[in-house]
Nucleic acid binder design. Structure first.
Length: 367
RNA sequence: UGACCCAUGGUGUAAUGGUAACACUCCGGUUUUUGGUACCGUCAUUCAAGGUUCGAGUCCUUGUGGGUCAA
């Protein structure tokens, strides 16, 4: 077999990772498929469903493709690490009054670490996934670039990857559109797979109800935090809520109480189980502090660098100035107002198509 | 228990005697590898009983339930 090298492909059994494997195989790589078992649906309740990145029940689908296409396939059980890290952090963050993004954590700390280790053990030069993103290189540094298909661009959730990981990662779908990928799947003979609908939820919350997940995880929580107070921006009590962990900054729906106008969660105060509600204008911010920063494109940020900063997954980004502080924090000054800056969510900095880096939002302010 | 005011969806309000409307909540959908946002949509209303009128949320009477003034 004329091989360009051995490559480890993370396969969920879904359309994207399956097509990824087949593209690379066609390009002459020797494929080693790997599927990570991160969570048991059997113990988490809810229906079985596919998800974008971690369709855990599709191990068999992945294996079948490997058999049909004639490459190796391994299953890695990382339930323990996944639980200790991603799920515990998920719960802890909500208890701290923040809004976690488990997919980012999982990519950064679980998925890629496990993949790299396996790649080494299996003698693979590269690892590949079905993410819609690209990788760029400049002055010896590697960085994520947004996908050609902006509708599917997943660069936002990949800001945490280290240089070591990036150096050895490939995203064959980064310059393709979703319709093209579907067509390819059909061309490869996987018609059913090519028509699989997209679906979405946190992979370990299959019923898409994170509040219910928290309650199942912490049986005493609901009673303990029920009956907290809503206050307005003047501090006046205007109602009661079901407990601060069940709300997120910027939230409008689900407040359970009618006010004269739309009200939004403006601030969460875990210490007193208080939620500050404000009008839409009260969500406006133009500065924020980002911690746990991972820089990709630069070793240290050029002074006064401007970036298009995203504060949530589906965000077109806001022009801003970045100022790197000593302790791996970045102070962001937005050049336009942003609304609903939620602590715990990821901030990702873009320069054109390139991801400068990212971090976790710690707090925000106005002027 | 003297006088006066009020009563409309789950909530807050609107409707010269002429098809009961708006906002918020709830629920559903679209979008989305997290949360959330945004957008679309559904359900649902005249306190009760009489009366006047071609026609009553609106006017009259009584009842009920609130509120205000009652040395």
């Amino acid at each position: 077999m004329t091989s360009k090298g051995r490559i480890l492909v993370a396969m969920s059994g879904g359309i994207d990772s399956t097509v990824t494997a087949m593209i690379l195989q066609e390009q002459g790589y020797e494929i080693v498929g790997i599927t990570m078992k991160t969570w048991d649906y059997a113990t988490s309740g809810g229906d079985r469903k596919e998800t974008g990145c971690c369709s855990l029940d599709s191990i068999n689908d992945a294996r079948q493709v490997a058999v049909e296409k004639g490459f190796h396939h391994f299953i890695v059980d990382i339930r323990e690490e996944f639980g200790d890290y991603v799920i515990d952090n998920f719960v802890d963050e909500y208890l701290a009054g923040r809004t976690p993004n488990p997919c980012v954590l999982c990519n950064t700390h679980i998925k890629w670490e496990a993949l790299i280790k396996r790649a080494d053990a299996l003698g693979c030069d590269y690892i590949a996934t079905g993410h819609y993103a690209r990788i760029g290189e400049q002055d010896g540094r590697y960085f994520i670039q947004r996908a050609v298909d902006l509708n599917k661009d997943q660069s936002y959730v990949l800001w945490g990857l280290s240089q070591e990981c990036l150096k050895r990662s490939m995203f064959p779908l980064g310059n393709m559109t979703k319709p093209e990928v579907r067509q390819l799947a059909a061309d490869y003979g996987y018609v059913e797979l090519s028509q699989k609908p997209e679906s979405y939820e946190i992979c370990f919350v299959p019923d898409n109800d994170y509040r219910g997940f928290l309650k199942r995880r912490l049986p005493d929580l609901a009673d303990k935090v029920d009956g907290g107070t809503y206050v307005n921006t003047e501090g006046k009590v205007i109602g009661t809520h079901h407990g601060y962990p069940f709300y997120t900054v910027g939230q409008r729906k689900g407040l359970g109480k009618a006010f004269l106008e739309p009200m939004y969660v403006s601030e969460i105060i875990p210490e007193t189980n208080t939620i500050v509600l404000g009008r839409e204008d009260d969500l406006i911010r133009n500065r924020m502090m980002v911690g746990g920063v991972n820089l990709m494109k630069y070793d240290t940020l050029p002074a006064g660098i401007e970036s298009l900063t995203k504060i949530r997954y589906k965000d077109t980004g806001t022009l801003s100035e970045l100022k790197q502080l000593m302790d791996s924090r970045i102070e962001v000054s937005f050049l336009a107002n942003v609304k609903g800056v939620a602590p715990g969510q990821s901030a990702v900095f873009y320069e054109g198509e390139d991801v400068i880096g990212g971090g976790i939002i710690q707090g925000s302010s106005k002027n």
